[in-house]
Design a protein around this nucleic acid. Structure first.
Length: 592
RNA sequence: UGGGGCGUCGCCAAGCGGUAAGGCACUGGGUUUUGAUCUCAGCAUGCGCAGGUUCGAAUCCUGCCGCCCCAGCCA
């Protein structure tokens, strides 16, 4: 995959439910919407092409972490393999040791596995084929279809011609097979300096498709230690040459890649037609994914990390798989997203709302509910017995009894969120607590605010309220209390740090300006807000990293691996709850 | 003035000659001890434009227009 690339893709038959065809293949029933690639495969199976087998592959280059665009490709390739009872290989396209490393190889494996896919024994490296690839090159030379060229990179560019003018033959184009074989052997033996020679396919310097103007297939690279092959090679094959042959060697039937490789297909086919190979996979191109408010170019993601704009590849604001995992996005939500966006050949930019909807939908169903106060305001219940602590039994999920219950303590002093109290209601739709008004404590009693205590600056620092003992699990007598707010008993609550995340960029297309500089100017300065005085209900005291919850009325949160200096837990806000109040507030403000 | 790809609702996306699926978003109603969830309803006489073929065209033909990709010894 490329440097600027976004890979993309969709669909998978995992646990997602979407409308669409229900295909029953031996052993499994899935509901995965069809797409043009699946239609092609259906036809191939109908005509018994490849003996009805389906073998795909996900071929990342280990030069960075996987991002949401790769998720599309992973779901497409592994999803198809699953649905057609085929296999999907994980193959690292590691032909450029200069940019690749073992950390990336590891992270890619972790991410694919986390997404829910298993390549079984089908784990390969293009570098596994360096020896056979070398032999194929010799075969090309013997057929008079490749030659060693001494032109410099710059000269080669001049000889290549332009988009509208044909190129011209290299003066080295007609070397004999013997001479080429000898020269190529010396290239491998390390007798030539970097850049002094390359091996080129001999095709057609006047081809309208520039990829066919005698493309380079081997270059010399001394002094780099390849993460898999060490220093055993000083010549490395190029992508176009390596990919098709690797596919063939592995018996891939359908080689799915992104649109920009469509121009390379003639080359893909040329190598396979020219050489004696095991099989001829079919390359099919689909469009990459663009997600609003994010960038998906590995080059730029790398610079976000290296320039310190984020804290690492797994920063919760990053559109990387690792970042989304740490942010708390469930793998199933990402898979669902990949199914929903579809697979086509048209350019597309998906709105963040689609991904967010997938995350909320999944979390709403699976996240246990808890109460947590992010911006605490002390409340003393004046008529509540001093020293008394009640344990209230509350449901972990309002719509799913199977998720059980938990106990939450209630006492004379509690904390509520500062945003849930206003001295005077700003409009008639406001239904939280106001001075002199009533509100229900979620899962608890109805309280009335009698008094506000302020500091010298006039800030409200404490509320004095009374509770109605008859309102636990019951409506109050003769009046309606519409508002419900969350709270935590002050003495029993545990302190925590909560990180509120927002989009990394404040421009829908930070990538739009093609120059690599611009995107940084669109970084959202408020993409992370850290709250350090949060109070969580006791049940949140023992949680594992990665465990997620809905903090009622606030959003979905996930326990982070970090811990504060005083050993308090840290939670990341995955996403807020849908907020129709924000809209009402705006309208109310306009209409009074 | 080269080659390749693409244009169906704000964003995705079905459709493959028989009279515009679905999702997200949005709007309005109902339920609700999360302003959440859930639920009901609405949301393209129209498929880049213009002609043509046909009883019938988003689907076929012709011609335009627009957008994306390609001149790495990157993938």
């Amino acid at each position: 995959m490329s440097d600027n690339d976004t890979l993309l893709t969709t669909t998978s038959g995992l646990t997602t439910t979407t409308s669409g065809l229900t295909t029953t293949t031996p052993g499994l029933t899935t509901t995965t919407p069809g797409n043009f690639i699946r239609h092609i495969i259906d036809d191939d199976i109908a005509t018994n092409k490849n003996d009805g087998k389906v073998v795909t592959r996900f071929p990342p280059e280990p030069n960075g972490y996987l991002h949401i665009g790769h998720a599309k490709s992973i779901c497409l390739n592994f999803g198809i393999a699953e649905d057609y009872n085929g296999t999907c290989h994980l193959r690292f396209d590691d032909t450029n040791p200069h940019k690749e490393n073992a950390e990336f190889v590891q992270s890619i494996q972790d991410d694919v596995r986390w997404l829910g896919y298993d390549w079984g024994k089908q784990h390969f490296f293009a570098s596994d084929y360096f020896e056979p690839l070398y032999d194929f090159a010799v075969q090309l030379i013997e057929k008079g279809k490749a030659y060693v060229c001494d032109l410099s990179a710059e000269e080669m560019r001049k000889y290549r011609g332009t988009l509208t003018e044909p190129g011209k033959d290299s003066p080295y184009r007609n070397r004999s097979a013997e001479e080429n074989r000898e020269l190529f052997a010396k290239m491998r033996a390390g007798e030539f300096a970097d850049g002094s020679k390359v091996l080129r396919a001999k095709i057609d310097m006047a081809a309208p498709n520039i990829n066919l103007r005698d493309p380079t297939i081997y270059r010399i690279r001394h002094g780099v230690v390849h993460h898999q092959t060490g220093e055993s090679w000083c010549i490395y094959p190029m992508y176009d040459y390596t990919h098709c042959l690797s596919d063939s060697l592995e018996g891939i039937t359908h080689s799915l890649c992104t649109l920009e490789f469509a121009d390379h297909r003639p080359l893909y086919d040329w190598f396979l037609n020219t050489l004696e190979t095991p099989c001829h996979p079919q390359q099919i191109e689909f469009s990459r994914l663009s997600l609003q408010y994010t960038i998906a170019s590995k080059r730029k993601l790398t610079s976000l990390v290296n320039d310190g704009h984020v804290e690492g590849w797994d920063d919760p604001r990053m559109p990387t798989i690792a970042g989304m995992r740490r942010r708390g996005y469930p793998a199933a939500a990402i898979r669902d997203f990949c199914v929903r966006i579809g697979v086509t050949k048209s350019d597309n930019t998906v709105e963040m709302g689609v991904l967010e909807n997938c995350v909320r939908e999944n979390l709403n169903e699976h996240a246990p509910r808890r109460m947590a106060v992010l911006n605490p305001l002390k409340v003393v219940i004046t008529n509540y017995p001093e020293g008394q602590v009640e344990q209230l039994t509350v449901a972990n999920h309002p719509q799913n009894e199977d998720m059980g219950t938990r106990e939450i303590p209630m006492s004379r002093e509690i904390v509520i969120d500062q945003n849930d109290f206003l001295q005077v209601a700003p409009n008639k739709k406001f239904k939280r607590l106001v001075h002199g008004g009533e509100v229900r404590l979620r899962n608890g009693y109805v309280i009335r605010c009698d008094e506000m205590i302020k500091n010298e600056q006039g800030d409200i620092i404490e509320l004095r309220c009374r509770y109605d003992p008859a309102t636990l699990g019951a409506s109050p007598e003769g009046r309606k209390v519409k508002g419900v707010i969350h709270w935590v008993s002050a003495a029993q609550g545990i302190s925590a740090e909560v990180r509120l995340y927002d989009r990394l960029f404040n421009h829908p297309a930070p990538d739009a300006a093609k120059d690599d500089q611009d995107y940084a100017a669109h970084l959202n300065p408020e993409s992370m807000l850290t709250l350090t005085r949060c109070v969580l209900e006791p049940a949140l005291g023992e949680t594992e990293d990665g465990e997620y919850f809905q903090f009622e009325r606030e959003g979905y949160f996930c326990k982070d691996q970090a811990v504060t200096a005083d050993h308090s837990p840290v939670f990341n806000r995955t996403i807020t709850l849908r907020d129709s109040w924000a809209k009402i507030e705006k309208q109310a403000a306009q209409s009074g």
